[in-house]
Nucleic acid binder design. Structure first.
Lengths: 192, 192
DNA sequence: GTCTATACACCGATAGAC
DNA sequence: GTCTATCGGTGTATAGAC
């Protein structure tokens, strides 16, 4: 038995290739317009062959969900680590990273935060990074003197609202993005 | 020529019946799961016969969009009219009516505020009531001493965020709903 | 005039040959 | 591992019965 499973490595690489093609397609045509036939054509297969790598179309969405939530957590980490280690400054950078993430690729925001695909729910594994991120948020708010769980929920509502309004009513612009800092001021004045 | 067009009246009644059946179906199965065949069966027709009343499935969504936005405006009006005529109290009732509207029928929220159906955009006629509602909001915020258009956008973001979080993470509950009043306090402290 | 019948091109998914 | 063949479902269009 070889100490490297070349077959498994190759399969994993093909899975990655399929997912990258899927991201490209949904960026071009929208999240709900992804079809197995288009996706197969994009990677040089028949649609049916994709089922050798993913058990269903929802499984592809699930893997994309995992991609996106891992990426978000990575960005949160680097945003917090990069710059002055002051609690409020870190919170601001974290918020900016979140909004940037939601806005620069609206389909990512749609997949993660708007449950729009009929019948699709992310698996616990794909969802886990988002849960960690939420706990991290609570710790960071506490570090800024915000201890009330109700305030934490207000924070997520404001963040979600800014991202949603930006994507829905001024896609590609910054009409709501630029309000983030004064929203944080407003929030901290009231809750800190 | 008769002074009443009985044929047109009958057609309009059938349109209404189809729309009511469509609302019932999307409430049960989700907005994107509406099919012409299901809908036809619900009203005792073949799917093809629906095309005598609506030119396409998107036309049905558009009429539903019109239903929902007119209903929202109606609720805003009654909420504002019913109770003490104090500007801030009226604003609070208006906000509560909005959240109630979004939460009691999540598909309505999805249809109006999350653009989730591939290729569907509401017609100007269906969209008009929402535009009026937004102008009315600005006037009411001004009456509360909030003159900055940036603040108006913050208001819509907070409202949208509360509704989105409530529907996404605690459907049927009140975890974010009950935060509306303190969000308004927070907002007015900062902007009024 | 409004329905039924039928068709088309597309969808996700499965079975089985090679 | 990828293919062909096929299935039941979808939105949509049109021809024709009555």
């Amino acid at each position: 038995m070889p100490n490297r499973d070349r077959r498994a490595e190759r399969a994993e690489a093909t899975r990655r290739e399929i997912l990258d093609a899927a991201w490209a397609l949904v960026r071009e045509q929208g999240l709900a317009s992804l079809t197995m036939r288009d996706l197969g054509a994009r990677v040089g297969m028949k649609a049916q062959s994709l089922y050798g790598y993913f058990s269903s179309k929802h499984a592809i969405y699930d893997a994309m969900f995992g991609d996106a939530s891992r990426e978000l957590v990575t960005r949160w980490r680097t945003a917090v680590a990069t710059g002055p280690q002051d609690s409020i400054a870190m919170l601001r950078r974290r918020s900016a990273a979140f909004l940037q993430f939601c806005v620069e690729e609206p389909v990512r925001h749609q997949l993660l935060f708007q449950r729009t695909i009929p019948g699709f729910e992310p698996s616990p594994e794909s969802y886990a990074p988002a849960v960690d991120g939420l706990e991290d948020l609570h710790a960071r708010l506490r570090a800024c003197g915000v201890d009330d769980p109700r305030a934490w929920d207000v924070w997520t509502a404001v963040s979600a609202g800014l991202a949603a309004q930006q994507n829905a009513n001024d896609p590609g612009g910054d009409r709501w993005l630029r309000l983030a800092d004064e929203c944080i001021d407003m929030f901290l004045e009231h809750y800190a």
